[in-house]
């Protein structure tokens, strides 16, 4: 079973090659740097939704936990990038542990409602403590603070490689989970949690671990986003940012390692295009959600896996 490894490492290599060969224009290079960081967010979301089968409507909470932990510590406490990343990591673990513990006391639709509710409250907290967060306006992280190992992270090429590095680590980690016996238990919980319990698995603990892994990867994505693009604002904590990763994962294929990347590329360019045409570009998101639930429940890779390649992890 080496072909799955080949394809995923191949995808990473391709993304490196596109840059090395200078195929990207400046515009697409910037877009892809964003897409790669957002895909990390999608990968985090997919661990919980795609593999474990838990639908969260509040992942913006985890994304913004990392985003604000990194951003505020650099802005207010003069942390360097390394320190900020470590803080963001620890804070994301803590937040996902607490939220996971509370939300997992409910099941089914209540879980979905509770995650959405917590996320909305985090958003309101960011607005309420505007003295620290500067609310809707947000904070800009100066170029001089965005230096890591003496690399200027605001330089477009370095930024692309940094995003690609974070992406590669998370993708490989996701692939490892998907192939491990731990991942198999998560899938078992998704498929039939009652049976998983009756096989002797501590389902509740596995679910909590899935929330923590998922929330922490989302937090890493948030921290990377803030540091690489220099902006930390409340809009990243609002409802749309909880819906985006759901949509990317659905489009690309829930429970597939490369699904979030495909979904994110597609939606990013679709929204980019639509927002030139109309202010009401979020209608695209609404229509996409309906189409995918009505006609393509498995998403692109999920459909391919179902029809032709059952080995896709």
């Amino acid at each position: 079973m080496k072909r799955d490894l080949f394809i995923h490492l191949g995808a990473i290599a391709l993304l490196f090659l596109l840059e090395i060969l200078g195929i990207f224009s400046d515009y697409h290079q910037g877009n892809f740097a964003r897409i790669l960081v957002l895909t990390v967010y999608g990968i985090g979301y997919n661990v919980l939704f795609g593999y474990t089968g838990l639908l969260s409507l509040g992942h913006a909470l985890f994304f913004s936990a990392g985003l604000y932990a990194a951003g505020l510590s650099i802005y207010h406490l003069d942390y360097n990038v390394g320190q900020a990343l470590i803080l963001a990591f620890c804070f994301s673990v803590l937040v996902s542990l607490v939220i996971g513990y509370l939300a997992l006391r409910t099941v089914g639709v209540s879980f979905m409602i509770v995650t959405l509710m917590f996320s909305q409250i985090a958003y309101l907290c960011i607005l309420y403590f505007g003295g620290i967060t500067r609310g809707d306006e947000g904070i800009v992280i100066q170029q001089s603070s965005r230096v890591f190992l003496s690399l200027d992270l605001s330089d477009p090429t370095i930024r692309y490689y940094s995003a690609l590095t974070v992406f590669s680590f998370c993708l490989v980690f996701n692939l490892w989970i998907a192939r491990s016996s731990f991942g198999r238990v998560l899938i078992a919980i998704r498929e039939n949690s009652d049976r998983a319990l009756m096989l002797g698995y501590n389902v509740q603990l596995y679910k909590l671990l899935a929330v923590i892994i998922s929330g922490t990867i989302s937090g890493i994505a948030g921290a990377s986003y803030g540091i690489l693009f220099g902006y930390v604002g409340a809009s990243f904590a609002a409802v749309p940012y909880s819906i985006f990763p759901l949509l990317w994962v659905l489009l690309g294929g829930a429970g597939t390692v490369l699904g979030p990347l495909i979904g994110a590329i597609f939606m990013f360019y679709l929204i980019d295009y639509a927002s030139d045409v109309t202010d009401a570009y979020m209608i695209i998101v609404g229509i996409a959600l309906l189409l995918v639930t009505l006609f393509a429940r498995r998403g692109l890779l999920g459909e391919l896996r179902y029809r032709f390649f059952p080995w896709i992890p």
Binding site: M112, T278, D279, A280, M282, I283, V285, G286, L289, L290
Partner: peptide
Amino acid sequence: IIATIGILYIIQQAVLM
């Protein structure tokens, strides 16, 4: 739940338009 999120955005954005 996913479909009603879709309906949410369609109604909201249609009203905006």
